[in-house]
Amino acid sequence: MTHDIEWEADHWIHCFHPKSAAEHTLVCFPHAGGAAGYYHGLSAALAPDVEMLIVQYPGRENRLFEDQAPSVEWLADTVARVLSARGLDRPVLFGHSMGAIVAFEVTRRLNRTSALPAPLVASASAAPSHVEARADLLGTLSVESDTDLLAWITGLGGTDLGMAENEELIGLVLSALRADLAALARYRVAPVRTARKGVAFA
């Protein structure tokens, strides 16, 4: 079991700028189709007392040849187990777009076993319960069309337009994006039995 957890930690969590004396930990979750490298610049810009850990989903960067995640829930179960094993002192979780949904589900799992709830910051995402909002977004995309998907992600401003000239790279990015969008389309938030502070979506 120890070997499994160590393996998972190395594969699931990136830390570009380790800070052994940091007082705070920020755990970041990439957007659909995204990878840990997306947060490298932000990690470098953080104050000395904040260490950033970035979740690396399977099927991209150093995990390129692994199967994509089958569901948001599967992602959340695994990441929560990995983070719990690290013994972090009340980390702040941050997720962008799809990452906000994954971070929300991880936060719920961490809070089940913690006396203090883990704070969550979410950006560019409707509330997890807003199934219609996700359906409207996904309904505008033709996930079978490379052209449509590429136009969509470049239109969001987070992708280098020059990437379109590299067909192999495009294929890898779009494969991860399709898998993530499929997981989002299937996702349904489970009811919350008790309200906990520190978790909120606008």
Score class of each variant (00 low, 15 high):
8 E>M: 11
156 L>Y: 06
62 N>R: 14
6 E>A: 15
174 L>F: 10
93 L>G: 07
3 H>Q: 14
53 L>Y: 05
76 A>W: 09
19 K>C: 05
14 H>T: 09
86 R>C: 13
155 G>M: 03
31 H>F: 07
123 S>A: 10
42 L>K: 07
107 T>I: 00
61 E>L: 01
82 V>N: 04
51 E>N: 00
98 M>Y: 11
11 H>P: 03
111 N>I: 12
75 L>Q: 01
15 C>Y: 01
114 S>A: 14
62 N>C: 11
128 P>T: 04
113 T>E: 00
185 A>L: 12
161 L>W: 13
180 D>C: 03
40 H>N: 12
129 S>E: 11
128 P>S: 04
21 A>F: 00
30 P>V: 06
28 C>H: 06
198 G>N: 07
94 F>N: 02
122 A>I: 02
144 E>G: 04
193 R>W: 10
78 T>E: 05
50 V>Q: 09
172 L>D: 11
81 R>M: 11
81 R>V: 08
51 E>P: 02
125 S>P: 00
60 R>I: 14
143 V>S: 06
69 A>C: 10
95 G>K: 06
27 V>W: 07
15 C>V: 00
200 A>L: 13
189 V>E: 13
9 A>Y: 08
1 M>A: 10
168 E>C: 05
157 G>E: 08
119 P>T: 05
117 P>Y: 08
156 L>I: 02
63 R>C: 13
142 S>Y: 13
75 L>K: 02
60 R>T: 14
78 T>P: 07
157 G>Q: 03
48 P>R: 09
58 P>T: 05
75 L>I: 00
104 F>M: 15
93 L>T: 11
109 R>A: 08
191 P>V: 15
145 S>A: 06
163 M>Q: 10
2 T>W: 11
12 W>G: 00
147 T>V: 14
109 R>Y: 06
87 G>S: 06
2 T>N: 09
99 G>L: 08
201 F>Q: 06
135 A>E: 12
137 L>K: 12
191 P>R: 13
187 Y>F: 15
96 H>K: 05
59 G>T: 02
110 L>A: 11
200 A>C: 10
196 R>L: 09
133 A>R: 13
146 D>P: 08
198 G>P: 04
95 G>W: 08
127 A>Y: 02
157 G>C: 04
79 V>H: 00
14 H>F: 09
33 G>W: 06
184 L>M: 01
40 H>W: 14
57 Y>G: 01
186 R>K: 04
150 L>N: 07
197 K>R: 14
133 A>H: 09
160 D>F: 05
165 E>H: 15
47 A>E: 14
72 V>K: 05
14 H>E: 08
5 I>P: 04
110 L>M: 10
128 P>W: 05
181 L>P: 07
26 L>R: 02
125 S>A: 06
88 L>C: 02
166 N>K: 13
74 W>G: 12
11 H>Y: 01
48 P>Y: 07
167 E>V: 14
44 A>L: 06
43 S>K: 03
104 F>L: 15
69 A>D: 10
83 L>P: 03
1 M>Q: 11
3 H>L: 12
15 C>E: 02
6 E>V: 10
16 F>M: 08
140 T>F: 10
38 Y>W: 15
193 R>K: 15
194 T>K: 12
20 S>V: 03
9 A>G: 11
146 D>K: 02
61 E>M: 02
154 T>I: 07
194 T>L: 14
38 Y>K: 12
121 V>K: 09
113 T>R: 06
76 A>Y: 07
132 E>D: 14
82 V>L: 04
59 G>F: 04
185 A>Y: 12
1 M>G: 13
